[in-house]
Amino acid sequence: MGELRAKWKVNMYAWLLLLPSLIFLLLFTFYPVIQTFILSFHQADLGSPEPFFNGIDNYKQMVEDEVFWKVLTNNIWFAIGTVPTSVALALGMALFANKALRGKSFIRTAYFYPTVVPMIAVANIWLFIYTPEYGALSHVMEWFGKGDMNWLGDQKNVMWAMIFMVIWKEAGYFMIFYLAGLQNISQELYESASMEGASSWTVFRRITFPLLMPTTMFVSIIAFTNSFKLVDHLVIMTKGGPDNASNLLLYYIYETAFSFWDQGMASALTIVMVVLLLLVAAFQFFGMDKKIHYN
């Protein structure tokens, strides 16, 4: 009996210690997710005064919805366009900022500065840059005789314009993680490699890059979730247009919920997004984690 009591006491302590974070997790994560999950099987739009159960109708409609597929494809392209490039660029910038002998802090500040600018402000700045005829970019393009390009108004260009802007915004943020990672690598390792006469490419490929893998892993998960999360600029710049060419999943969810007031459909879309993100995160964590060296 005494043993059981002692065990219970230990467990009690554990639960008490977990309690604060548990409350917040339950309240703000699990409960909303479950509610959303339930709501996704209901019809809850302006036409139905009380939400009522409609099975998998929302999901069926979604599959038939062209805009959904377009938005999903857009988002996948957006992720493919932003994640590897911003991560690679961040690594490059970190390597440079770490090596730079002069103006180290200036370079770091310059690289990091886009991160501290709010996305709304960024969107406004880039809206001006992309403005046809009198925008900053148009002035530059004029030298090449292409000053008349409409970056945001053209279905072909708008996604590229967005991807470019987001890379600019994010790379500096990821660079900070890489800088920290680089500073964790012992200088002795590089000295040892230089005694062997390893070229800088070999050193990068065989030492720096593998030892930065935990950072790369972390940063790419953040970058990937950001590519689904970051939609502030759409509100300012394109509202998803022209013809949904720049629309992303989260912004579409927002529109469905708060412009078309179809809460059931918005919930179903949210569930799709959550599952998608979970799948990718799971793949990254369980698939790639084994190949990564952690100190």
Partner: peptide
């Protein structure tokens, strides 16, 4: 080297 400088991932 003093701290051996072994590559931890190899």
């Amino acid at each position: 080297f003093q701290n051996y400088a072994l590559y931890p991932h190899l």
